[in-house]
Design a protein around this nucleic acid. Structure first.
Lengths: 192, 192
DNA sequence: TCGATTGTCTAGCGGTGCTAGGATCGAATC
DNA sequence: GATTCGATCCTAGCACCGCTAGACAATCGA
């Protein structure tokens, strides 16, 4: 049994290597640069090895997305638990979200822009994605306001953040005023 | 001179044909299906002809984006001018925006998701893009509220709409509650 | 009618995601 | 310790991509 176990360990390790390398390459040079050939070369295996771990490039993107979702959830919870009171919590949440998107553009793309073959807002949504949404919900439900469903409020707030994140990074919005936009968003949307 | 004029007319007509065909193909089968080969085949010319009109695929996307921006500006102005009072105007604006995005997903992608080689929020931003933003600004500046810069408010409101549009279409948000999210957004963000 | 110019096409480059089929290597058996 | 045999991996190649060089044909002005 030990031999099988070692092989499985090695296999799992290589899978992690693939995901980490894809992520690294995507952050360095963009997802367009993440070709199966380049990826294979970087992990020092041939292309077909990738396909023994993932169905295709799409699934590799999906794996990066899941990793990112878990990290984002952790970051959001760390930020909100360090803040005192509803208003600072929501502000911290928004800032942390946008900060994550800015610091990890490729991961953010994998999560929300690219097709990673993942199901969202669905029963068979992968756990990390549900948990990231839950992290948003935890801090936002307390400021949803009377008669507004917390999930609906969270979705709307999230959409606003997502819009800011993507439009800013795609150079559709000048980056200088991000803080003021966040302030406006928090002031108006959240009910303290 | 007449001969030259005729040629120029024909050339302009063919350029319109290329843009229209690219748009049609993108709406039918997605931008991935818009390959230079397929596009050339549909307009019944060879591939290199495309490159005598546009520098490359990117510029074709950009042309579709500009067309879309002009249409969106028209649609927004039509909707807002038909509404009476600030609140109905903003509601109509938001609904029309999301409706446009839903009805013309490929065009919307060309405008805001894909790289069409266009400059945004910049002095040499193409006129249709500036005008589409102006259409938003016209209706939104009256509800920005005291002490809030109209442009900043418009950017934030736009970002929220953009987030709703993209997340909904990417199946990150369930489409059923769109109207309620819009209602929430208008109620909270706009100051009547 | 001829030469020049314009316009268009064929063919091909280097790249993409993905896969079939053969070689190789290591583990289990005798 | 030799031998089988199955898992593992790689070479080679498919059809497609965006883009372009260079040959060819049609059209124009003289």
């Amino acid at each position: 049994m030990s031999v099988q176990e070692r092989k499985e360990r090695e296999r799992a390790g290589r899978e992690r290597l693939i995901v980490a390398t894809a992520r690294e390459l995507a952050e360095q040079q963009g997802w367009d640069a993440v070709t199966t050939r380049r990826l294979a070369e970087r992990i020092e295996y041939s292309q077909p090895v990738l396909y023994s771990h993932f169905r295709g490039k799409r699934e590799i993107i999906g794996a990066v997305a899941l990793q990112g979702a878990a990290e984002m959830a952790t970051a959001l919870r760390a930020a909100t638990s360090a803040a005192d009171g509803p208003r600072p919590r929501v502000t911290a949440l928004a800032r942390t979200y946008l900060d994550f998107a800015e610091r990890n553009p490729a991961v953010y793309d994998a999560m929300f822009q690219l097709d990673g073959g993942l199901a969202f807002a669905h029963e068979d949504t992968p756990e990390p994605l549900k948990d990231a949404f839950a992290a948003l919900l935890e801090s936002l439900s307390e400021v949803a306001g009377d008669g507004v469903h917390p999930a609906l409020f969270t979705e709307t707030f999230w959409a606003a953040l997502h819009g800011l994140a993507t439009l800013t990074r795609a150079r559709r919005l000048p980056p200088e005023d991000t803080d003021r936009r966040v302030e406006l968003l928090v002031d108006r949307l959240a009910m303290f």
